[in-house]
Amino acid sequence: MSDERHVGIVLVSHSAEVAESVAGLAKALAGGATEVPVAAAGGTEGGGFGTSAELISAAAAAVDQGAGVAVLTDLGSAVLTVKALLAEGDELPADTRLVDAPFVEGAVAAVVTAVTGADLDAVVAAASEAYAYRKV
């Protein structure tokens, strides 16, 4: 099973630390999932707060194993930049999808699902369903 292709997951935040930390948290909660490719694309290339199209494209390329890529974002320019890159056509791997999901809960659900070898539809559905998880 070592040659199994997993869905790649990209986490886009205005903050590099948030993106990295959520990636680490999701992997830890998925039982230290090392086989699922998860990449953080946080902040600008200069290390500031914001969104970098280059970092997003590089992260998506890095996690693409041919099984599709799920992109989760925080808000504002992170969402708009991913949408604009998807509209561009050739900037992101062929089967890349922006997932409508809460950032932290969605990332955990996506990684936990992807580690089972689930396909892109299942990973996207699991992340989106995280919206329905009520806390009170």
């Binding site: 969104t51 504002g76 320019s77 708009l80 930049t81 949408k83 604009a84 509209a87 561009e88």
Partner: peptide, 21 residues
């Protein structure tokens, strides 16, 4: 448009980028 999407870093990048592209 493409260059604005790449370099602005805020929401105005993808918005102006999309307008021009």
């Amino acid at each position: 448009g493409r260059q604005l999407i790449s370099t602005v870093g805020g929401a105005s990048g993808p918005l102006y980028g999309t307008l021009l592209r």
